[in-house]
Amino acid sequence: MILDSVTLQVAALLVILVSALMYVLDTLMLKDGSPGRYWSAAYLSGCLSALCYLIGLVLPGAYIAVAIGNGVFVGATGFIWLGCLSFNGRPMRVPLIVWAAAVPAVAVAALAAGPDGGTWAGAVPFFLGNALFGALGAIETRRGAVRGRWSAGGLTVIMAIESLWFATRAVVFIASGPESDLFLAVFDTRVASLLTIVLVVAAVIVTSTLRSSESAFRGHVAARNLTVDGDGILFRDSFRGALGILLTRARAAEEDPCVVCLRIDDLRRVSMAFGPEEADAILRAFRGAARRHAPTMALVGETDTTGITVAFITTSVTDVSRVARSLRDRVVADVAALQTTVAPVVGVGVALAGQVGFDAERLIEAADAAAAEAVLTGRQPFGLA
């Protein structure tokens, strides 16, 4: 059976339409936050672009519809990126300006060719626009709060595939032209329609999962900032939110918060050499010891799987290096008490808000970088990052 371009475009339109309808209805029922609204806009834009391309296929002279379809398609990819930025709490002003400049530029590039521009009018800006926003989206899914969700890996793959495919499509288009055998076999409109169907279905599933996790705690900000695991350790996003509140209050009170990061050597090698049970036992002892020996009123949260961050307010008599040394020594002692086959290295890093700045991400990154360096080199400076 041979599927022509019109049939595949109709199929893509139906898939996108059903996906967008389901997603938008969920958005309305959940009273969604800004990430869900951006993603809803992406699927609605996908519907409009598919409809425009269908009009362009049925009516070859409708070059305006193709131009609008190009711009809106790039806009849909950009909306996925904007949703990830919003999910991570990034500043949105500059990204919105970039989006608002790129989308009309792609459409104008197709319109500039006029009625004689043909099906591929403005193709290169269209390809490159999707490649750009796809790459930005893939990068953003590996940062901040999105990275902490297991389902984000699927969105990373989706955006990376789109970016790579469109970038390669642009290169082949420029080098060989749209009538070449390679372009017709791998990058033709029919292939694009099939790829769109697959990626849209996958993206709807992933963004729905991400939106659900984001909506679950949105009703009250403090609820999201007090989510802890069984050891009483704040989850990554919760810790950053709580630390942000602490830093705001500390700056107003002219106090100097301190962040201490503990990092244990990569346990994957322990798991491969001596079994996952031993690696799990070491990790549980490490996390429990960090929580147990941290200053009583300190915030304790996870940096990632093998890292713990402790934040507390210092005074004029606080010896930060002594606190860091004592905390690391006690954690190492508790881990060593397991008498496992191998004793992994534990590194410590310290950062003061008065020197690094009253920004949660910068403080954690500075202290964690020092802890990672201590793990690699074996040198424990116990001083400031």
Score class of each variant (00 low, 15 high):
8 L>Y: 02
12 A>F: 15
29 M>N: 08
30 L>A: 08
33 G>I: 10
34 S>K: 01
37 R>M: 12
40 S>Q: 08
42 A>D: 05
43 Y>W: 07
54 L>C: 04
55 I>R: 06
63 Y>H: 07
65 A>Y: 02
66 V>Q: 01
73 F>T: 01
79 F>I: 03
83 G>C: 12
88 N>P: 06
93 R>H: 14
103 V>A: 06
111 L>R: 00
134 G>Y: 12
136 L>I: 10
152 A>V: 09
155 L>K: 00
159 M>F: 11
159 M>W: 00
167 A>C: 10
167 A>H: 03
170 A>F: 04
172 V>H: 03
189 T>F: 01
191 V>T: 08
192 A>L: 14
194 L>N: 09
197 I>E: 02
200 V>F: 12
202 A>P: 13
203 A>K: 00
230 G>K: 09
246 L>P: 00
247 L>K: 00
251 R>Q: 12
265 D>R: 01
268 R>T: 15
270 V>H: 03
271 S>G: 12
277 E>Y: 12
285 A>E: 11
297 M>C: 07
297 M>P: 03
297 M>N: 05
315 T>Q: 02
322 R>F: 15
322 R>G: 14
323 V>K: 00
324 A>W: 00
325 R>N: 09
327 L>H: 00
329 D>K: 07
338 L>E: 04
339 Q>S: 13
352 L>K: 06
355 Q>R: 10
356 V>T: 14
357 G>P: 08
359 D>M: 06
363 L>Q: 04
367 A>Q: 01
368 D>V: 14
370 A>R: 00
380 Q>A: 13
381 P>C: 07
